[in-house]
Design a protein around this nucleic acid. Sequence first.
DNA 1: TTCCATGCTTA
DNA 2: GTAAGCATGGAAC
Length: 990
Amino acid sequence: MAKSKAPAAKAAAKDNGAAPKAAAQPAPNGDNKPIRNLYLVDGSGYLFRAYHALPPMNRPDGVPINAVFGFCRMLVADLLDKPEVDHIAMILDAGEVTFRNEIYDKYKANRPPPPEDLIPQFPLIREAARAFNVTVCELKGYEADDLIATYARMAVEAGATCTIVSSDKDLMQLVRPGVELMDPIKKTKLGPEAVMEKFGVTPDKVVDVQALAGDSTDNVPGVPGIGVKTAAQLINEYGDLETLLSRAGEIKQPKRREALQQNAELARISRKLVTLRDDVPTPADPDSFDKRKPDPNVLLPWLEQQGFKSLLARYTGELGEATAPVAPAAPAAKPTLPASEPKATPAAPRPKSNQPFTAADYELITDEKALDEWIAEATKAGTVAFDCETDALDAQNSGLVGVSLALLDGPWGNVNSTKRRAAYVPLGHRTPAGEAQGALDLTGDGGAKDAGSLLPGQIPLKNAIAKLKPLLEDPTVLKVGQNIKYDMCVFRQLGIEVSPVDDTMLLSFVLDAGKHNHGMDDLAKLYLGHDTIKFSDVAGSGAKQVSFDKVPIDKARDYAAEDADVTMQLWAQFKPRLAHEHMVGVYETIERPLIPVLLSMEQAGIKVDAPQLRKLSSEFEKRMLELEQELHKLAGRPFNVGSPKQLGEILFDEQKLPGGRRNKNGSWATDVSILEDLAAQGHALPVKIMEHRQIAKLKGTYTDALVRELDAKTGRVHTSYQMTGAATGRLASTDPNLQNIPVRTEEGRKIRQAFIAEAGHKLLSADYSQIELRLLAHVADIASLKEAFARGDDIHAITASEMFGVPVKGMDPLVRRRAKAINFGIIYGISAFGLANQLGIGQPEARDYIAKYFQRYPGIRDYMERTKDYARKNGFVKTPFGRKIHLKYINEKAQGMRAFAERAAINAPLQGGAADIIKKAMIKLPAALTSAKLKGRMLLQVHDELLFEVPDKEIDKTKEVARKVMEGAATLSVPLVVETGVGDNWAAAH
DNA sequence: TTCCATGCTTA
DNA sequence: GTAAGCATGGAAC
C-alpha cells in the first residue's frame, strides 16, 4: 500500500519563488516593464456592488457619488498603493448590444433598469479612472467580461498572474492557476474553492453548470427544473454538458430525463451565452496597462470637484499642487483607448504547459546512469519534489517500493518545452504472490506482504539508496514533499535524514486553515484543476486491493510520478504566498521545525501492558454478556443492545416511556441525557444500557484496539500525529488516537493504567494549567483576571466572587462550579442555550449569568465583539503568534451557520494560541534535554499535556527542564504555569 | 463494499 | 457553546 495523499489550500505565481517570467508579447515601444501581476477592474460590476454597499452620498453640487467614492477608495487602497500591482486596467461595457444578442435575442432582455441615483455615476467612473491615470478599455459588440477573459488569458500565457477585481459569478469560469477573483468590497480573494462553493464544480466546468441552471437576471434560459445544485451533480457525474446530453437517457429520474432531452438545444445555446470569449480583438496591449502616477493637473481638480477631501489632501501632499489649471474631465496622459477599429490580435495557441498531466511524459528510471543524471539535475536545480511509495500504510513498518522525483523550470529543455519533469524509480516491485515460485497462497491472509520475486528492470535498492542519500541530505538542495513526515520516516529507517525540507501540506495549512482540507487529491483539484490518479485505480479496492509492490511498474510510474509532479507545482504556488500573506513566521518557527519532533515521538511510541489490557477486555466481555441477558429480560424480547434504533423502539414505542425526543431524521434519540432522565424516574433498563455502553466503548475503542495496534517489532503503540487535522492548529492523533484515552471514570482509568513506563523508567506528565483562560485574560487584556493569575489564585473562585459578590473563603462549591462553567463557556463562544445545558438550568437563568459576567468583565464582551468584527471583515482570525484560522461561514446568510462560525472565531485564537505555545515548547525540548545530558524522551502530546518517559534517576532534573521550557515557551502578560506528575503508569502520572 | 448517523471519549 | 477520532448499526450501492 502507498501512503495516503495526506490532507488540504489556494494559489498564485509559478516557479520557485523567483520573479515570474516576462510578458510574452513585447510592448509596442519596448520600454514598459514586464507584466507580473495584471489587475483587471470590472468597472460596471464594481459600481453596482459599491452602490449597494455604501450609504447614499452626494457631491457638493448634489450629484450622487457613493459608488464612485467607493471605487476611488478601493482603487487607491487595494490597487495603486499595493506594490505587487504593476499593471492595471478598468474594463467597461461599450454598449447594450453584443454578439450574444445574435445567438439569443432575449439575452439580458429583462434586466431591470439601474437605480436612478446610480445612472449619473456611470460616466463619472470613467472620469475617475482617467483622473487616476488608469487605462480604460471597452469593445463594441462584446461585453466587458469577454475583454477580461481575453486579457486574463494573455496574462497567463505571458507567465504573469491576473487578478480580476469583481465578484461577478459569471467571471468565475476564468479562475485557474494564475487567475483569481478579488471581491472589491469584502477584499477577499476568490480562488477555486470559492468557485467550488458557488457552483459545486471546478472553474472549468462552471459554464456547463450555468448552461443547465440558466440565469434569470441575464435571461439565460437553461433547462427548466434544474438549478445549480442539480446541475453540478449532473456535470460532476457525466463530466461535461455534451456527454450529459448525449447520455441523458440514462438518467433515472423521469422528470429530469425528459427535461434534459427536450431542452438539449436550449442548454447548448445557454452554454454559448455564458461562455466568455477569450479571443476577442484587444483594443490595447496589456503591456500598456503599467501602473502610472496620476497627473496632478488632472487628478487634483477632479478630486476637488467630487468633494473627496481626504484623497485630495493626500495627493496634494504626494504630487504637489497642480501646476496648471485644467478642466476637471480633461483626458489624462493616456487617453481612453478607442472602442472602434481595434487591432486584431488572434488568440495564440495554448502553450503545452496548459495541458498538464500527460502521463506519457513521465519518465521511468531503470538504470543507474539515468538515476545519476536525474540526481545531478536535481542538485543543480536546488529544489526537487519527491515522494515515496511503500508496501504498507504505516510508515514505521513498511518497505520502500519506489521513489518519484519532480523538477520545475530546470535547464534541461528537452521535455516538450513544458519545463516540468517527473520520473519514477521503481525499486521493490514484485510479481504477484507466489506466481514466480509456483506456490499457492495458503496462508489465508490475502497475500498481503508475501514475497513474490523482484521484477526485472529495477535498480538494486542498496545502490539507489546510496545514490539518493547525498541528494536527500544535501544542505543546499530543498526537498519538497506532501506530508513529508511520512517520507522522512521511511528514509530514516534506511539511514537517510532528509534535510532541508518544505511540505506542501503544511504550506497549504498555514495559508488556508479552515478553508478546505489539505490532502494532495483535494489540492490538485483545487489549484491545478486536476483529478489525480486514485490509489484504488492502480491497486484495486476492497478485498482485491494489493500492496503497492504488486502494482505493475508502468501503472505505478503514472501514479507515483504524478504525486511528485503535483507536489512540485503546488509548492510553486504556495511558497511565494507565504511572505506575501505574512505566514513565514508560523511556518518556519512553529510548523516546519515540529516535523522531526513529532516523527521522533511517533517512532518512540509508548509501552502498554498488553496482558493487562487482554485481561480487562475479557472482564468487560463477561460483564457485557450478563448485561445483555438482563436487558433482554427487561425488554421482554431479545434485541441488539448496541443499536440505538432498536433501543429507541423498545423504550418509546413498546414500553411507551415518557420524555422521548426524536433525532433529525425521525428516529428516537437515546443518548445519555435521555437515558439519565429515564433513570431518574426509576426505570431499570436505561441504567443497564448506560453501563453496557460504557463497557462496550472501553472494550471496543480502547482495550481491543490498543492490543491490535501493538507494534510487533517494538512491543509499543505508535500513534500518528496529524499536523493539519484541526484548523485551529491543534494536532490530531490517529491510528490509534492517544489523545482521548479515558480519565474521568474509575473504569476508564483502568485503561490509562495500562500505559506504562519501560523498566527503570517512570512516566512524567507536564500540563499547562488553565492555558486557554490565561490566553483570554491576555488577549482581552482583563486587569483583574491577569492579577489573579499573577497571584496564582483559584481563577474560577475569583470569577465567582467577582460575579456574585461573595468571598472566596468558604465559598459554596456550587457557586464556583457555575463560574467555572461560564469561564469555559466564554472560551467556547458562549450561548445561553449551551450554558443552560451544561449547568442543567433554564435558558433565562443562564442568560442572567452571562449578563452578570459581562457586567463584571466588559472587556471580555469587547474582545468578543472585536474578534467577530475582525473575522467578518477579513474572513479569518489570528492567534497571538500570527496563525490564521479562516472562518468559511462567518458571513453566511443562514443565522445558525453564522452563529456557529462566530463561536469558532472567538474560540480559535485561544485554542490555536495554546496550540502554538505547546508546539514552541515541543520544538525546544529535545535540544534542552540533550544539553542537560538527560536521556528522557517526549512520547505523547495531548493538547495541553506532554508525557515523557524518563530514567528513574533523572526524574527531578527532567521535571525542571520540562517545566522551564514549557513555561518559557511564550511571554504573555500573564504567567504560564506547568503542573507535573510522575508515576509508573499514565493514570498515576496524570 | 461504502457511506452516513449516532453516540462517546479527550482537551 | 470550541476542537478532534473512532466504533457500531444499518441503509445505500
